[in-house]
Design a protein around this nucleic acid. Structure first.
Length: 631
RNA sequence: GCGCCCGUAGCUCAGUCGGAUAGAGCGUCGGCCUUCUAAGCCGAAUGUCGCAGGUUCGAUCCCUGCCGGGCGCGCCA
């Protein structure tokens, strides 16, 4: 990364560096601050309430108006045990808590007790875990989990639709790792099947020698165009044949015979066709590699359909012999009555060849046996929900205990404003076009002003990170069960709730820290060694914006834990947007100047900015988003 | 027909153990740059939470039935 600054900046630079985890001595969904508050409250409740502080911590919420306090405790749940009305309980509890050193103010309000934290003490609990470091992501759980995602087909084009899967899978890998799991990131490439035959038919039969030369920079994408052309031609012939066009019907029949011939020749390992297949396949793989590199995504294991094809057929024989699978109309499958609307799951066609489903079973076995995984996650669009229910049920009946821990993460499709994406109608945005337009827009609209002032290399890096941040955040911020309408023009705006807004916020906080350093005002991390003094210093905080920011920072841990537990990165997006807004309100407030303030206030604010900066960096990192050091 | 998903502000969406006056972004209108990044901040306006029942002290949230939209449903992947 270009532009990583002078000494000591490394710690708070937002460039690339070793990642670290946040280590807390509490459960994942709560925080040390909430537990501390809950313990105090539990101590003030009558013994009959009999409530566990850890549970009580879960009940703490935010008052509707920040002016009411930092935290609110609903007292409805105590009503039964204490045999009193919630308002009375709230009033009595508030009275019992009066004078507690944890709170600056305690007010009953209806069935609630509103709590205003003693900000210095609270900050002294919230900030240190964010300021300590650097640590690495640690494996703290025994389970090994595999996340399978991306799964593009070779010989087809990679487009924005594929980006949602890629961003989602990558974020899940990062979130689960941050949550302590041993995670294997897996890809599964579709390098066999009818689409290959169609593509090669066009390549071999329709193109001449002159046309058979792919552009050096985008050979995989070019192959995808061939596939699209072939597919469109076949569909056109099909349509025409349906209306009685005899010539079209004949052409269609010839083409189908040819694609079948290609498919069979490939299965028979015909040397000449295999050579063509390997060469063209390599072009696609090279494209994918470049895409993954640009996206900052890495896989630990790449599976290929071609490697589970034959094992799948052997597996069918094996479990047919065992009586787990059955014959039906000459085909082989399994009856999963659990899925009432389509109980038969076909695993071998009448012609003896395998299916998508067959390979998925062989792949699952390979995953279990080769990687000894305890849990297996599949990131695949929601249209395949029934398919995966069948796969998992079947695996269970085949005797794999891991079947209980197989999970499909379904997500809805990406569409364009002009409708669902379709190769046939050309209604599609390919990856390269997406990347070029995003990068180009960022360069011309936001970074042009730095030309000449910044090194060209830094500008290029910056454009890359912003374009990528916009795409990833856009793909992740929406819940998985919501369709995404990808409007390139809208995504280029980069305003409001976007990745670049968060990246810009980090650059802003980083700028304060950097300028402080230049003025000899470094963040005083030695204070972390002196808790009493730290509390005293942080006691200088008191502005509403500071209060809001401290409580917002406390939410990082639960947000990450919730996202990991629910396999929902959008939770982190929502949280980070709130955090960034808090940070920007703080940074904008005239009452909260950092470098222009003095003494403990300045020291405390520097710590607060540094902690916020780190929280944003760490949160974004779990989404696969990196912010440039300056913007 | 059966199954899964969606329906909340003009638009796009949060709100997933049931809790206070249902929130955000965009758009609209009006403010804020001689002071740490205006890709920002502040303020205003905008709602039968698809409809109807039920459970509950309390329902956008849970249950039932409808209406509207998307997707899937035996030899594709």
């Amino acid at each position: 990364m270009a532009g990583v600054g002078p000494q000591g900046e490394r710690r708070f630079a937002n460039g690339l560096r070793s990642e670290r985890g946040l280590v807390y001595a509490c459960g994942p969904m709560t925080t040390p601050l909430l537990l501390d508050v809950a313990a105090v409250i539990a101590g003030a409740l009558p013994p009959q309430a009999a409530v566990d502080p850890a549970e009580l911590a879960q009940w703490l919420s935010r008052p509707p108006d920040p002016a009411l306090g930092d935290l609110a405790l609903p007292c409805f749940k105590f009503a039964k045990a204490l045999r009193k009305g919630p308002p009375q309980i709230a009033a009595e509890l508030a009275a019992a808590l009066a004078g507690s050193p944890s709170f600056a103010r305690v007010e009953p309000a209806g069935g609630y007790v509103n709590l205003t934290l003693q900000l210095g003490a609270a900050a002294a609990i919230v900030l240190p875990p964010l300021l300590r470091g650097p640590l690495t992501v640690q494996v703290t759980r025994r389970e090994r989990v595999m996340v399978e995602y991306s799964q593009p087909n070779t010989h087809k084009a990679f487009h924005v639709g594929h980006m949602r899967n890629l961003c989602l899978g990558d974020a899940l890998v990062r979130l689960l790792r941050a949550d302590g799991y041993d995670v294997i990131a897996a890809n599964y490439l579709g390098d066999v099947g009818a689409h290959i035959a169609k593509c090669l038919w066009w390549y071999l039969d329709v193109l001449d020698d002159a046309g058979r030369v792919p552009p050096a920079a985008a050979r995989g994408e070019w192959l995808g165009e061939l596939y699209g052309a072939a597919s469109n031609q076949l569909s056109a012939w099909e349509d025409a044949a349906a209306t009685g066009d005899a010539a079209a019907a004949a052409a269609l029949a010839r083409a189908k015979a040819r694609t079948t011939e290609i498919l069979l020749a490939l299965e028979a390992r015909d040397p000449e066709l295999t050579r063509v297949w390997q060469q063209t396949r390599a072009w696609s793989l090279a494209d994918f590699d470049e895409i993954y590199r640009w996206c900052g995504v890495e896989f630990d294991r790449v599976f290929y359909e071609s490697e589970v094809d034959e094992p799948g057929l052997r597996l069918v024989d094996e479990f047919l012999a065992k009586g787990v699978f059955v014959q039906s109309d000459g085909a082989v499958g399994i009856v999963n009555d659990e899925i009432k609307h389509m109980p038969f799951f076909m695993l071998r066609k009448r012609d003896g060849t395998s299916l998508y489903a067959t390979k998925d079973l062989a792949l699952a076995r390979l995953k279990f046996e080769e990687h000894r995984i305890d849990r297996s996650i599949y990131v695949v669009d929601s249209r395949q929900s029934d398919h995966f229910r069948h796969v998992f049920l079947t695996l269970r009946k085949m005797g794999f205990p891991q079947a209980e821990r197989c999970e499909h993460v379904p997500y809805e499709m990406v569409e364009l404003p002009s409708g669902p994406m379709a190769t046939r109608s050309g209604n599609v945005i390919l990856f390269r076009a997406l990347r070029e337009r995003m990068v180009g827009h960022v360069l011309s609209h936001y970074l042009a002003k730095y030309r000449g002032e910044w090194p060209d290399e830094e500008i290029e890096t910056c454009a890359h990170l912003l374009a990528l941040g916009a795409i990833k955040y856009g793909m992740l911020a929406r819940d998985v069960n919501q369709k995404i309408v990808f409007d390139l023009e809208a995504w280029l705006e980069l305003e409001g709730n976007t990745g670049p807004y968060l990246q810009w916020t980090m650059a802003r906080s980083g700028s304060i820290l950097r300028k402080g350093q230049e003025q000899g005002l470094a963040v005083d991390l030695a204070l972390l060694q002196d808790p009493a003094r730290l509390r005293e210093v942080l006691g200088a905080l008191g502005q509403p914006e500071e209060r809001e920011l401290v409580t917002a920072l406390d939410g990082l841990r639960p947000a990450l834990a919730q996202a990991a537990a629910g396999l929902r990165p959008s939770v982190v997006c929502g949280y980070l947007h709130e955090l960034a807004k808090s940070m920007n309100r703080f940074a904008t407030s005239k009452q909260c100047r950092v470098l222009q303030s003095e003494g403990d206030v300045r020291t405390a604010r520097l710590l607060l900015v540094a902690a916020s900066h780190e929280a944003l960096r760490w949160g974004l990192a779990q989404l696969g988003i990196v912010a440039p050091p300056r913007l």
